[in-house]
Simulated assay, not measured.
Amino acid sequence: MTRVAVVGGAGYIGGDLVRILLAHPEVDLVAVTSRSLAGRRVDGAHPNLRGLTDLTFTDPGRLGRCDVLFTAVPHRESMGQLGRFAALADLLIDLSGDFRLRDPAVYAAYYGVEHTAPGELAGFTPGLPELYRKELAGADRIAVPGCMATAAILALHPAAADGLLTGEVTVDARTGSSGSGVSAGPENLHAERSGAMRVFAPTGHRHEAEVAQATGLPTRMTATGVEAVRGVQVLCRVTLAEGVDERVLRAAYRRHYGEEPFVRVVAQKRGQYRYPEPKLLAGSNYCDVGFAVAPGSRHAVLIGALDNLVKGGGGGGVQSLNVRMGWPERTGLGFPGLHP
């Protein structure tokens, strides 16, 4: 069995990661860390895990060596502790934003601080198997993309890779409250968030840079918080290249994603759920993508949806682990979501 530990397991992404790893047949989850909850039971912070584990949180300073280390810590913490994390495991999978961008100048522009380990950025492979499966097979350091970035990248990828788009992309992203994390501030109290549709990033959201980096497209992004707890949905407004119509677009999606285990093309002519809907994806590792083309024009909307804590977080990390270790990609990730 592969010995796995999670640093920062008290948060929402850490909790879902622990949930997935406990049921993974190839791994032995040996430790979950938390500074504030050290010595207390993991299922106290994550009550859905009652009866599934007797693990208690370990103080991060007392963590021993393992085979694989997941880091689900706040942004800016991973880069400061990279040397220590790397000494604890041969394979490091980071779920923070610290190693997602390759250019330190771009990182500084979007995160507001200088990167403290700029020379290490090129050593991380993006944890997005749909685009980087070959690279992940030999990677020892993996950086899982952000949740809204993952949805937008997967929605855009077939058209971008096939040269079907022209001009700038505008990404309109909506996210549930769990995306703010377990320690979110007063603006995310139920009394403030309930019933609201808050535009918290009208311009320059951090995931904008990830989308541009992965697709090669000039990108502008807006992010809005909605009343849902889980889920991300992105609407990517694009201009199709000359001669590209819905038939060409659909063929590109089928060609790129026909064999993908966790991407489904949802673009139907009728039905209640004709386009990607995050409600159906809660708890699952799927990203549904779709599209709509305005009749008689070159304007199109490319749509992506996922669970921000699974495919956009811990599940994406476990999928990358499966690819890296040569295990079947669906291992531990079979939950299909819920309806209703």
Results as ranks from 00 to 15, higher is better:
2 T>H: 04
3 R>V: 03
5 A>C: 08
5 A>Y: 06
8 G>H: 04
15 G>S: 00
30 V>R: 04
36 S>T: 10
40 R>M: 02
42 V>P: 00
42 V>A: 00
43 D>C: 00
45 A>K: 00
48 N>Q: 14
49 L>E: 04
51 G>L: 01
53 T>C: 07
56 T>P: 05
57 F>C: 06
58 T>W: 10
58 T>Y: 06
62 R>Q: 15
62 R>N: 15
81 Q>Y: 01
82 L>V: 09
91 L>I: 15
92 L>N: 10
93 I>E: 14
94 D>G: 10
94 D>A: 08
95 L>T: 12
95 L>P: 12
96 S>W: 12
97 G>E: 06
100 R>V: 15
101 L>N: 11
106 V>R: 12
106 V>S: 12
107 Y>S: 13
108 A>Y: 10
112 G>C: 14
114 E>G: 15
121 L>E: 10
126 P>F: 06
126 P>G: 07
126 P>I: 06
128 L>W: 03
129 P>K: 01
132 Y>G: 02
135 E>C: 05
136 L>T: 02
143 A>P: 05
162 D>Q: 14
165 L>E: 06
167 G>D: 05
168 E>M: 01
171 V>S: 04
179 G>W: 01
179 G>T: 02
182 V>A: 05
187 E>N: 01
190 H>W: 13
193 R>G: 01
194 S>T: 11
196 A>D: 11
200 F>D: 06
201 A>V: 00
201 A>L: 01
203 T>L: 10
205 H>I: 12
210 E>S: 09
210 E>K: 03
212 A>G: 15
217 L>M: 13
217 L>H: 07
219 T>E: 12
229 V>S: 06
239 T>R: 09
240 L>N: 07
261 P>V: 03
262 F>D: 03
265 V>P: 09
268 Q>D: 14
272 Q>I: 11
274 R>L: 09
280 L>R: 13
281 L>P: 05
288 D>F: 13
289 V>A: 10
290 G>E: 12
291 F>I: 09
295 P>Y: 10
295 P>E: 11
299 H>P: 01
300 A>F: 05
301 V>F: 12
302 L>R: 10
313 G>R: 01
317 G>T: 02
320 S>C: 00
335 F>K: 04
337 G>I: 01
340 P>M: 06
